[in-house]
Design a protein around this nucleic acid. Structure first.
Lengths: 249, 249
DNA sequence: TTACATTTGTTCGTATGTATA
DNA sequence: TTATACATACGAACAAATGTA
């Protein structure tokens, strides 16, 4: 039996937040692993010396933060951050009728170069820093729809090779996580319209001068660390970029 | 005294969600205006015939959605969506160096027409419904940058005239609020790339065939009620669309 | 299929603490 | 100081979902 929390931290912070911290500590200590169930509410409440309601409020917070997942009748589980769904959270190109599908990727080019000025600015790199530049073609429903040009700091992705990229068994962001320990947790994205140059027109199978949507994205890891700078050029004849909905109720 | 909710809707959806909907209905009916306090928890709980805890859970949801704001010791207030900051929350065009500025607007056209198919779909209107169609030109730093085509259901904006639009002293969304009691609390936005037609080229002062960013937006009020359907065509030679940042922590 | 035990979900009412006017 | 209002905490009861015997 553990010491009641309130005895350790008499006042100041609410009890349910102390419980939340205690749960986070237990998680960090590896007491329960990803995908595993944590103990039922009643035993946990007893362990921490609080009422069920207080324990539930702590768990409410943790589920809101996607750290725990509750399933009525089954239990409360440690969230897994490895679902494909999660990795596709940042892919926002859909058909104009709204139908979503998963893209297939072709690696077109892999280079190790000195970072250009814009890449250095976006990735907070010093002049002369080396980066990997990767060009991919993504297709939806069998037709090429967008060309991605990725820039990755060599410092963060040391050991990266074309072979690794080509043979990765999963999505790119999953690959970052599994092979380099880099978790993409957010992106900042801007959009412009451009005309397709010869190269892009060829790659997308459209005439030069076609209007393309140009998305410029920085992907961030913890602590706002930029880890990827990406320019996507999208043929929006049949597809469109689905913006995040703002504050709907 | 109102009828208890549970009597109207015996089972199925949880009580606290019924309370939440009832609160949203009261808000939509204008029972409390933005910035005003709603009644204290206890009277509200009695009015809906539920316990304080259930009422609080409903309000928890609404505060999480930024529809209500709680202040300990003062009360619970209808969130204000009337700060300039907020109104410009939905204006996301910035100069490519990142500098933001406020646009100036010119009214180019005002019409009352039958809603087209796409507008009907987006605004959930019956065939034959009348709408107001308003075309604006927005300029930044003195140069025209985008053409907005707005479609508004006549049913929601009855009494709308060109004169009112032209002489409104405030932003458009503020105008909706003050003159028609319509609160825009969210938007869903998609993006495509198009080529400028003759009209848009003239209005924006660019050659026909220039690539334009086309933003298609539905604005929502409470209960996902669509209130405005808008197509913006943006000259992104010097400006760009600043997407919402996704989930950074 | 049925019955049952387990676990989370919802709702209740009460008491006490804390912030505000 | 006092009254009001939201915040926290408690525990009990029943509902709903799940898995298993």
């Amino acid at each position: 039996m553990n010491t009641p929390l309130s005895a350790l931290s008499p006042t100041g912070t609410p009890l349910y937040q102390q419980v939340k911290q205690a749960l986070l500590s237990a998680l960090a200590a590896g007491e329960w692993k990803q995908g595993e169930a944590i103990p039922p509410e009643k035993p946990l409440a007893e362990r921490f010396g609080v009422s069920i309601g207080t324990l539930r409020k702590a768990i409410d917070d943790l589920t809101a933060e996607n750290i725990l997942v509750r399933h009525q009748g089954r239990g409360t589980f440690v969230a897994k951050h490895e679902h494909n769904q999660h990795f596709f959270r940042f892919f926002r190109i859909v058909r104009q009728d709204g139908e979503k599908s998963y893209p297939t990727t072709e690696l077109l080019r892999f280079r190790r170069i000195s970072a250009g000025e814009e890449a250095r600015e976006k990735l907070l790199l010093a002049p002369g820093s080396k980066v990997f530049e990767i060009t991919n073609r993504l297709s939806l429903h069998g037709s090429p729809v967008l060309i991605d040009t990725l820039t990755l700091p060599e410092a963060l992705f040391s050991g990266m090779t074309e072979k690794l990229v080509r043979e990765r068994p999963s999505t790119l962001y999953r690959f970052y996580q599994d092979s380099f320990g880099i978790n993409v947790i957010g992106t900042a994205e801007n959009a412009r319209a451009t005309l397709a140059d010869e190269d892009h027109a060829d790659l997308l199978g459209v005439p030069a001068g076609t209007a393309l949507l140009e998305l410029r994205r920085v992907a961030y890891s913890y602590n706002q660390q930029p880890v990827e700078w990406r320019i996507s050029r999208v043929n929006t004849e049949q597809y469109e970029y689905m913006g995040q909905e703002h504050n709907r109720s």
